[in-house]
């Protein structure tokens, strides 16, 4: 090969060797920097964690002084306080959470989060939405409402989840809207936000059971039983005949938690059918009061497919090998 000269080969060799050396140096430098950062964080942790923890359990009259100490920390330490508080807020509620929010405020977190709402990066806006849901500062709901209609699907999803922390009808309306088919927010996430709202969402959930959008009906049906939504029983029975399988399945499972006697004939009909619906309906029948289902269980025992029989806890017809 005339073009592959010794000189060219030497150049290729040198370049390869340099690249290898470069990657090794890169790995070593990465590791060195990370370890240095971890050491620094450990020092900061020792400095601020006790302060933050004390603030969550101290007497009311001691809190102002502790908050003043947080306010007086340097920028690095305050950043660490914010990280610590956000991590802890996911695990605590009540008075301890309120105290933590005060600490976050003293560490200058609220203005930083509010500013991040407008950031051009979707990841930063998502972080802001998450923090707004945890911190709930004044103005959080307004900002979350805006983020719930963000151009980024990721931001919308985080904002909807965060809205679950607010006992507010406008938040409920946005969460219900996020269930719509094609909203870009997963049904499970939006339904979990409704659950987090609890009874506040009850009326909206009951109305949503009749929504023309199957996504909304699905989400509302999933939570109606767990929330024990008053007056939802008949609607759930009606949804056992919905056009969409997911809605029918959710209705079956909801009726396990919100039993309605008039559901029995339709549940039996479904339990005598095949597939996942049959199994779910059989399991739901078992969960209903036995006095309602004696006949249905007898029919199941005689006519149901093995999978539905198993779901209903019925014994095997034939002995095992």
């Amino acid at each position: 090969m005339t073009w592959l000269t010794d000189a060219l080969m030497q150049v290729i060799l040198l370049i390869t060797a340099a690249l290898m050396l470069g990657t090794i140096v890169a790995v070593v430098v990465q590791r060195g920097l990370r370890r240095r950062r971890l050491r620094r964080e450990a020092v900061l942790d020792a400095q601020v964690r006790l302060l933050v923890l004390t603030a969550t359990v101290c007497d009311d009259d001691e809190l102002p002084e502790l908050l003043q100490r947080v306010d007086g920390l340097d920028a690095d330490a305050q950043r660490h306080v914010r990280r610590t508080v956000l991590g802890m807020l996911r695990d605590v509620t009540g008075e301890a959470a309120t105290r933590l929010r005060a600490v976050a405020d003293a560490a200058g977190m609220v203005p930083a989060v509010m500013a991040a709402v407008e950031h051009r990066s979707a990841a930063v806006r998502s972080d802001a939405a998450e923090a707004l849901g945890l911190l709930r500062p004044p103005g959080a709901l307004r900002n979350l409402r805006s983020l719930a209609e963000d151009r980024s699907r990721e931001v919308r999803a985080v904002a909807i989840r965060a809205l679950g922390a607010f006992d507010d009808q406008s938040a409920t309306a946005l969460i219900i809207a996020a269930h719509r088919t094609g909203s870009g927010v997963s049904n499970g996430l939006a339904a979990s936000a409704l659950l987090q709202q609890g009874l506040v969402a009850g009326d909206a959930v009951r109305r949503a059971l009749d929504d023309p959008d199957p996504g909304v009906r699905h989400g509302a049906t999933r939570v109606a039983g767990i929330l024990q939504v008053a007056g939802a029983g008949d609607a759930l029975v009606g949804l056992l005949r919905d056009d969409h399988e997911l809605v029918r399945l959710a209705a079956i499972r909801s009726l396990e938690q919100l039993p309605v006697r008039s559901a029995v004939p339709r549940l039996l009909e479904m339990a005598l059918g095949e597939g996942v619906e049959g199994e779910a309906a059989a399991a739901a029948l078992v969960a209903l009061p036995p006095s309602w289902t004696a006949d249905a269980m007898a029919q199941l025992s005689a006519r149901a497919a093995p999978a539905a029989r198993r779901a209903a806890g019925l014994p095997a017809r034939e002995a095992l090998a």
């Binding site: 093995p306 999978a307 198993r310 019925l314 014994p315 095997a316 017809r317 095992l320």
Partner: peptide, 8 residues
């Protein structure tokens, strides 16, 4: 566990 086997 004496429940029926689905045999799907």
């Amino acid at each position: 566990d004496l429940r029926d086997l689905p045999r799907r």
